[in-house]
Simulated assay, not measured.
Amino acid sequence: MKKLILTALSFILSTAAFSQILTPVKWSYAAKKIDSEQAIVFIKATIDKGWHIYSQHLADGGPIKTSLKFEKNDNYIVVGNTTEPKPVSKYEKSFSMNVQYFEQSVIFQQKVKLKSGQASVNGTINFMACNDKQCLPPDDVEFNIPVK
């Protein structure tokens, strides 16, 4: 009996040690100055094959949409809304509605007005990644994008 319990415990511990947290979305950042007072920050999601993240523009009652929140700062002002390319639109039975999402990669863009010629644009991305079998819990990723 002891041997059986030890074997089971050993199996559970080894499985837990080798289990992997799913991270199907990787984020990267860049900035480009338009002139001495304006810049565009680029926030790119690289999405593993078979996975997707949702658009910023979804109707209520569906999946968690991607949202970008920019921290207020004395060195810059956010100008307008964050833009995104045209997403894939598809009816999803699990939500009983059409949803818009991105596969492979997507680049969100945000224009900022610089108050001192340079800044560090900070904020948080909230998103949910899904594949055809599961959705991961919504995740928050903080970013810091230097604009020089």
Rank of each mutant, 00 (worst) to 15 (best):
Q109D: 03
L114R: 03
E84Q: 15
Q110W: 02
N73V: 01
Y101D: 05
I77D: 15
A129W: 02
K72V: 09
V106N: 01
K90M: 15
M97V: 00
T82M: 00
Q118F: 06
F102K: 07
I107C: 08
Q104I: 14
V112G: 08
N131K: 07
M128S: 14
K111G: 07
N75A: 10
Q104G: 15
P87D: 00
Q110I: 01
K113D: 09
Q100H: 14
K93F: 09
N131Y: 07
Q118K: 12
S105E: 13
N122Y: 07
F108T: 09
S89P: 05
V78W: 03
K115V: 10
I107D: 07
I125W: 01
Q109Y: 06
G80E: 02
D74S: 11
E84A: 11
Q110F: 01
G80I: 06
N122A: 00
K113W: 12
P85L: 07
K72M: 05
S116V: 12
T83A: 04
A119R: 05
A119H: 04
L114N: 03
T82V: 11
M97G: 00
G123N: 04
Y91E: 01
K86V: 03
V121N: 01
V78M: 04
P87A: 01
S116F: 10
V112T: 08
K72N: 14
Q110L: 02
N131G: 10
V88R: 12
K111P: 00
S116H: 13
C130F: 13
C130Q: 13
S96Y: 09
L114V: 07
D74I: 10
N81T: 11
Q110D: 05
V112S: 09
N81F: 13
M128E: 14
V88F: 11
D74T: 10
D74Q: 07
N81G: 11
K111H: 08
E92T: 12
K86Y: 03
K93Q: 15
I107E: 09
N126V: 14
A119P: 01
V112I: 02
S116Y: 15
F102G: 09
S120C: 11
N81S: 14
N81I: 12
Q118T: 04
V106Y: 08
K113C: 01
F95L: 03
F127G: 09
Y101G: 03
S116D: 05
T124R: 00
N73E: 00
P87W: 07
V78F: 08
I77P: 07
K90S: 15
Q118G: 08
V106K: 06
Q109N: 12
S116Q: 10
E92N: 12
F95M: 06
E103T: 15
Q100K: 14
M97W: 05
N81W: 09
G123Y: 08
M128I: 15
Q118A: 05
A129S: 11
